[in-house]
Design a protein around this nucleic acid. Structure first.
Lengths: 252, 252
DNA sequence: ACCTGAACACCGTTCAAGT
DNA sequence: ACCTGAACACCGTTCAAGT
């Protein structure tokens, strides 16, 4: 027996499949189903209940259809999640190719990406899990590259600089979205949740060591609210990255 | 009815639980089970088969025990994964508090974290999903803070700079580990897999637009192997971040 | 104190059958 | 062409029962 990767060597992405089976009119069918409607319902459910609770059966119920109808339009759950992922990237407002200088456009792009990740906390695990080469994701990455290229970096540095900026934004948006979702789940404001978590950590003997460190952070941050801290840290880090790009461009 | 977060408002972390039930000798029991052995088997299985395939039943089989025995030592699957997460952070070799200058220690820490994420691709989703406040994770974050504090940044910039650096490393290590795992699953070298993926994207009409952009990147990167590219981009980005920290420190 | 077996309420997906 | 129902091979977890 030849050692194979699982059974059937799954196709790496929906976007590399043959012509889609779905995508017809929508209304001709008894149920009015099509890929667009299914994808929209998926995004809605993911926003409302999160990735962990999403299931094909749950989605079918939402669409007033039997569990297996969806499979006429979509091969697997993975394919459907890839479609939802790219649909979310479609929400990004991309700045014009020309106009402001690259710094201003980079701030705009980073801000858009961050707020997308916060708005859809399920997006971050999906962006990590799949290839993310749908049309909207590609438009985004093309724009990002255009912007970075204007910064005057040496050619061999462009992809590295791009990584530095957007891996940061990705990571930051991920934990921020996660944190806010947790707070909302617990029925608290972000500030109440912060105080609550701090108290839990402080009171637990196993967590000693986290305490002094957190106190320092709090002191440094002053009496800000959580969202002020999040804003300030993000802005500072982004300016740091821009300063780093400038420094590397100057080195040549 | 009061609106509650699910049923029972799940405890936010194993590390905030009361005294652990497990952790006894290990050998007194018929099966020789304890938390340590269970956690080690979990890490082994996650390395071998990935997060998606991991299950409590699969783990029990590995330990030659019935599915439910594990629940004597661990409350839920989530708790167990948190234990595995912190165990992995225990593999990090943290540099001494004093010695080299902060730049050298930052490079060492970033390199350690990156290789940890690559070695254990399951770690990245878990680090995003849980609070990650186990003893080893806390030791890591304490060390990171010590290092950043030596860079001469204004107090309000320390946490932002910390985010910039370690969100970058996290994101970079995540996609790198993911990529290498995919290649290995497909039974290819990283270079073969790269060529294969490029060909798939190039041939697919839907992917037009990704092509020219990728060609540019390739051209800029020269005839490197994938691992040379990964190395170069990581190093460039890290130097960019260090330069950015220096610039922000100079601004005061 | 520790471990088992049966059971509950779920999954994603296949397949033969309906209209 | 589109949709359904039953079935398969799984899950995490509860619970009563064993030793």
């Amino acid at each position: 027996m030849v050692k194979a990767a699982g059974k059937g060597a799954a196709r790496p992405s929906v976007w590399l499949a043959g012509q889609a089976r779905g995508g017809r009119r929508g209304g001709g069918q008894p149920s009015g189903l099509d890929r667009k409607r299914i994808t929209e319902a998926t995004v809605r459910l993911l926003d409302a209940e999160g990735l962990a609770k999403f299931s094909m059966r749950r989605l079918a119920a939402e669409l007033n259809v039997t569990a297996m109808s969806v499979y006429w339009y979509v091969d697997t759950k993975d394919d459907l999640l890839e479609l939802a992922l790219d649909a979310a990237f479609g929400e990004l407002r991309l700045p014009d190719a020309d106009g402001d200088d690259w710094r201003e456009r980079l701030r705009a792009l980073a801000g858009e990406y961050r707020s997308l990740l916060v708005r859809h906390p399920w997006l971050s695990p999906l962006a990590g899990r799949y290839l993310n080469i749908g049309p909207h994701a590609r438009a985004f990455s093309r724009t990002v590259q255009d912007v970075i290229r204007r910064a005057g970096l040496p050619a061999h540095g462009v992809t590295g600089a791009l990584s530095a900026v957007f891996q940061f934004v990705y990571g930051y948006g991920t934990i921020e979205g996660h944190y806010l979702a947790r707070a909302a789940d617990a029925g608290m404001t972000p500030d109440d949740y912060y105080r609550h978590a701090m108290r839990a950590v402080t009171e637990d003997p196993a967590a000693s060591g986290a305490v002094e460190q957190s106190r320092d952070i709090m002191a440094a941050r002053g009496g800000d609210t959580v969202s002020e801290m999040l804003e300030r840290d993000f802005d500072f880090a982004l300016e740091l990255l821009i300063a780093g790009i400038e420094a590397m461009a100057a080195r040549g």
